[in-house]
Simulated assay, not measured.
Amino acid sequence: MRVVIAGAGNVGRSIARELIGNGHQVLLIDRDPLAIKTASVPDAEWLLADACELASLEEAELETCDVAIAATGDDKANLVHSLLAKTEFGVPRTVARVNHPSNEWMFDDLWGVDVAVSTPRLMCALVEEAVTVGDLVRLFSFRGGQTNLVEMTLPDTSPRVGVRVGDLDLPGDAVLVAIIRDGTARSPERDGAVEASDELLFVVDPDYESELAHYLSPRGRAALVGVHN
C-alpha cells in the first residue's frame, strides 16, 4: 500500500515509521525545509512542497496512493489536502488530524475526510474507557459519524452476563467485533458466552447507541465521549 502523509513533523514522521515497519510505502510531504529530516525516516520518500497545491500533488503522483493522511498542525491545511486528495486524485481513503476540537464538525465527507482523528477527544475517550464500567464509551467515529466504534466493560449486574454471543439480540445494526478478557483480545464465537468484566467492542450506528447501552446495562447511559456531531 502506498501512503502519502502531508506534514513531516513529529506526528507525520511517527506515523511514517509505523507504516513502513508494517511493510507499506510512504511519501512524506512538507513545505518547510527544516522539516525534511530524511535521516529520521530513511526508508520513506520525501518531497519538499506544499501539500495543498495541485501542482505539488501531481508531482507526488497522488493518484497512485491508497491512503492520504493529513497530519499537519494546521486544520485548514489538513482539510484542503484531504479535499484535493479525494476529489482531484481519487484517493480511496483519507485520514485527517484535528488539532482544535472546535473545528471537528468540519472534518466530514464534504471536505473529503473519511476518518477524522482528534487527539484530545481520543485521549478523553480512552480515559473514560479505562475507568468506566457499565457505560457505553464512544472510542472512534468512522465515515463522518455514520458508524462508531464503542466499548463497554460489562458489569456483573448486566442481564447479559453468561449469555451466548449467538443469542445476543443487539439493537439495530450493532456488531460485536471483539471481546477483551483478562487483557487478551479474542474474536466473538457464537457458542461462547460474555462474562462480567469483559470489554466488549461494537461497531454501531450512532442512532442505536442508547439502545445498545440499555440492552447491555439497563442503568447505563450512552457516553458520547470523543465526538461532536
Rank of each mutant, 00 (worst) to 15 (best):
L28E: 12
I29T: 13
D30S: 12
R31A: 14
D32W: 10
D32V: 15
D32F: 14
L34I: 06
L34E: 13
A35D: 08
A35C: 09
T38E: 15
P42D: 11
P42N: 13
D43A: 15
A44S: 12
E45M: 13
A49D: 06
D50S: 05
C52V: 09
L54A: 15
A55S: 08
L57N: 12
E58V: 11
E59A: 11
E59W: 05
E61W: 03
E61T: 07
E61N: 08
L62Y: 04
E63R: 14
E63S: 06
T64F: 11
T64P: 00
D66L: 01
I69M: 02
I69A: 04
K76V: 09
N78P: 03
N78K: 01
L79K: 00
V80G: 02
V80P: 00
H81L: 11
S82L: 02
T87V: 06
T87E: 15
E88Q: 07
F89M: 02
R93W: 04
T94K: 01
A96G: 04
R97T: 08
P101R: 05
S102N: 08
N103S: 10
N103D: 02
E104K: 10
W105F: 09
M106Q: 11
W111R: 09
G112F: 00
G112H: 04
V113T: 12
V113A: 04
D114T: 15
D114G: 13
A116V: 02
V117D: 07
V117S: 03
T119N: 09
P120Q: 04
R121L: 05
R121P: 01
L122T: 12
L122Q: 06
M123H: 11
C124E: 07
A125N: 04
L126N: 01
V127K: 03
V127Y: 11
E128K: 07
E128N: 14
A130V: 14
A130H: 14
V131A: 00
T132K: 07
V133A: 08
G134I: 01
G134D: 06
L136H: 04
V137F: 06
V137H: 09
R138G: 04
L139N: 10
L139H: 05
L139M: 06
F140I: 00
F140L: 06
S141V: 03
S141T: 07
S141P: 01
F142G: 02
R143T: 07
G144W: 00
G145Q: 04
T147E: 15
L149P: 03
V150Q: 11
V150M: 14
E151Y: 11
E151C: 15
T153H: 13
P155N: 03
P155D: 02
P155M: 01
P155L: 09
D156K: 04
T157R: 08
S158F: 11
S158P: 10
P159R: 11
R160D: 02
R160A: 06
R164N: 12
R164M: 12
